[in-house]
Amino acid sequence: MGEFMIKQDQWIMGIETSCDETAVAIIKNGREIAANIVASQIESHKRFGGVVPEIASRHHVEQITIVLEEALKQAGITYSGLSAIAVTEGPGLVGALLIGVNAAKAIAFAHGIPLVGVHHIAGHIYANRLVEEMQFPLLSLVVSGGHTELVYMKEHGHFEVIGETRDDAAGEAYDKVARILDLPYPGGPHIDRLAHEGKPSIKLPRAWLEEGSYDFSFSGLKSAVINTVHNAEQRGKKIVPEDLAASFQQSVIDVLVTKTERAVEEYKVKQLLLAGGVAANKGLRSALEDKFAQNPEIKLTIPPLSLCTDNAAMIGAAGSILFEKGHQSGLDLNGNPGLDITIHNYK
């Protein structure tokens, strides 16, 4: 009898509210997107020049059931068809996380569906599995507004952070430099655009840290940019914004790509993934493509823009593997702003 059992499809609902996007997705068998709804609050936060946590939390409450309903409608399934509900447990803004977590718990309780708490970065990494099946061991470069990390994975659901930022995330540095250049929030895309129009002619530092370290540091670079602008002002000279953007971007990319390249060699990985919102950066994409696309030993995967920025499809994709590995959360699941990705490793 047993050998004739039909493997049923696995359907995971993903919920993500860690920052300023209210997102719900439905993922089939870990890799197929049946629904992917994102309600962005960016227009609301623009007037403040950054995400205001209290306002983000308020918007999540306004949006959550609307987004849930849209996702179910788009996927054309009902609760009885869901295998599990995956939700971002952390890290992120605590008040924002709590909306997704409590909505997820309410649905799980109402319909008796298993619940899986997911680390936000595990989600970013698993966004890649919606594009291409993963090949282990792999290395993931995670770059976003809140994170700059190199994560090594020997197998599914097992995460090892081999390097991370010691101060600002790369995305934060982008936003700060954008502010110095009077560019609107969020600054990343504007710097990227300007950088392509300028020349990296201004000398800026690269923080390599101790020999062999895979950690990052961007606060020194940020200060150097500020000093460069001030010094120019004092001497009555005008800095060409395009050149400053190009020089800044070049400095960030040099460090990211060089450290990634070294880790790829040392860990002998088969695949390199780019994850997180800064993966949308054209400069970073093309630098990685130049380095790795011709290398037959390693597969480079960069997901499309819609899967790089915060979304719930990635949470569903990570949740799919974690659920398969036996991870489940109780109704006492909480939002945890300082969650460590290695919590997923125990099984």
Partner: peptide, 17 residues
């Protein structure tokens, strides 16, 4: 603010679902 939001999120999600 946070306290009220927890109750309201659970209640509105339960009612809706």
């Amino acid at each position: 603010y946070t306290g009220v939001r927890i109750g309201v999120t659970i209640a509105k999600t339960l009612a809706w679902t």
